[in-house]
C-alpha cells in the first residue's frame, strides 16, 4: 500500500507541474498585460511596472521564479488586491468553498443513494420511473438556472431564506447555495447507484444470499449495497473536480467570497500570482483527493491490491 501511494505521488507531482506550466504559458502567450487597460500607458511608467514585477527578465528566469513560489507553497502577492498575499486570500476563501461544496456533496450522497437504491429495488415501478425522470431533470437543468429559480421561490416569494451573501457556517444562508450545487450530483449519484445496484442484484452472490434464507432487507443491506455503491465511490474523485466548477457558479450567484469567485476575478484581471496560486492549490487538492479515493476504493474492495 505504501509503495502504491508513493508511486501515485510520483505520477501526481509531474501532473501538477504540467498544469501549472500550462496555466503560466497560457497567461504569458496571450496578448496584452495585466496593467494594460483602456488607455495607453506612458512608456516610462510601463518600464517601471515591468521592472517592478520582473517582466523585463528572460522568460526562463520568470518561470523559475514562479516555480520557486510554487515549490515553497508561497505564491506571493496579488497584483490586483494590493498588499494581500495570495496565501492569505486562499486561506480566507477556502473555508467558504469547502463548507458549501462538502455540504452539497454529503446531501447529494444521502439523497442520491436513497433514490437510486429504491429505484433499483423497485425496478420498472412508478417510483423507479419517477426518480429516474427526476434525475434526468437534475442533469439537464443548469445550476445557474436552478439557483435563481430557488431564490425566486424561497427568498423573493416565500421570504424563508436569504437570497445571497455569506453568513458563516452553519447558517440559513447556506441552504440555497447547497441545494443549488447538489442538484446535479444527486442526479448523477442516483443514476450511478441505480445502475450499480441493478448490476449487483443480478449477480450470482446475491442469488446465493437469497438462497441462504436472508430477508430481502438483509440481502440488500448486507450484501448488495457494498458492491452496488462502488461506482459511487469512484465517482467521488471526478465529482470533486466537478464540484469546483459548480462552486464557481454558486459563489457568483449568491455572491459568496469563495475560492471560485476569486479565481474568476483573477482570470479577468490577469492577476498572475493569484491565478497560479489558486490553480496550484486546486490541482494539488484534486490529485490528492483522487489518491484518497483510490485508497478508499482499495480498502472497500478486498480484491484490489496495489
Amino acid at each position: 500500500m505504501l509503495r502504491f501511494v508513493l508511486r501515485r505521488l510520483l505520477i501526481t507531482i509531474p501532473t501538477i507541474l504540467v498544469v501549472i506550466t500550462l496555466t503560466w504559458g497560457l497567461i504569458r502567450l496571450a496578448p496584452g498585460n495585466f496593467y494594460s487597460g483602456e488607455k495607453p500607458i506612458p512608456k516610462a511608467i510601463e518600464n517601471n511596472i515591468r521592472e517592478k514585477y520582473g517582466l523585463n527578465k528572460p522568460w526562463y528566469v520568470q518561470y523559475g521564479k514562479m516555480m520557486g513560489h510554487v515549490l515553497l507553497l508561497d505564491f506571493g502577492t496579488s497584483l490586483k488586491y494590493e498588499g494581500q498575499s495570495v496565501n492569505g486570500i486562499i486561506a480566507r476563501s477556502l473555508p467558504v468553498s469547502a463548507a458549501i461544496g462538502l455540504s452539497a456533496y454529503l446531501l447529494a450522497l444521502l439523497v442520491g443513494i436513497t433514490l437510486g437504491s429504491f429505484a433499483a429495488l423497485k425496478q420498472n415501478s412508478k417510483l423507479d420511473y419517477a426518480s429516474m425522470a427526476l434525475a434526468m431533470v437534475g442533469i439537464s437543468v443548469p445550476n445557474f438556472v436552478l439557483g435563481p429559480i430557488l431564490v425566486l421561490i424561497f427568498s423573493l416569494t416565500l421570504y424563508w431564506l436569504p437570497p445571497a451573501r455569506w453568513y458563516g457556517f452553519p447558517s440559513r444562508g447556506m441552504v440555497l447555495p447547497v441545494l443549488t450545487l447538489s442538484g446535479i450530483y444527486m442526479a448523477y449519484i442516483a443514476r450511478l447507484t441505480r445502475a450499480g445496484m441493478l448490476e449487483v442484484l443480478r449477480s450470482d452472490y446475491i442469488r446465493t444470499a437469497r438462497s441462504k434464507g436472508l430477508s430481502e432487507r438483509q440481502v440488500v443491506m448486507r450484501h448488495a449495497l457494498r458492491g452496488g455503491l462502488m461506482p459511487v465511490v469512484s465517482f467521488t474523485g471526478p465529482a470533486l473536480a466537478f464540484l469546483l466548477t459548480g462552486t464557481v457558479v454558486v459563489e457568483r450567484l449568491f455572491t459568496l467570497p469563495g475560492l471560485g469567485n476569486y479565481f474568476i476575478q483573477a482570470s479577468l484581471n490577469r492577476d498572475e500570482p493569484l491565478i497560479i496560486g489558486i490553480v496550484s492549490f486546486i490541482a494539488i487538492t484534486l490529485l490528492l483527493m483522487n489518491l484518497v479515493v483510490d485508497i478508499a476504493y482499495a480498502y472497500l474492495d478486498p480484491r484490489i491490491r496495489y
Binding site: 501532473t15 500550462l22 496555466t23 497560457l26 473536480a241 482570470s267 490577469r270 486546486i282 490541482a283
Partner: peptide, 18 residues
Amino acid sequence: ILYSLPYIILVIVLLAMF
C-alpha cells in the same frame, strides 16, 4: 493524465486570456 487534470480551470484561463 489528461483525465486527472482540472481542465475546466484551464479552459477558463484559456478563454479569459485569449
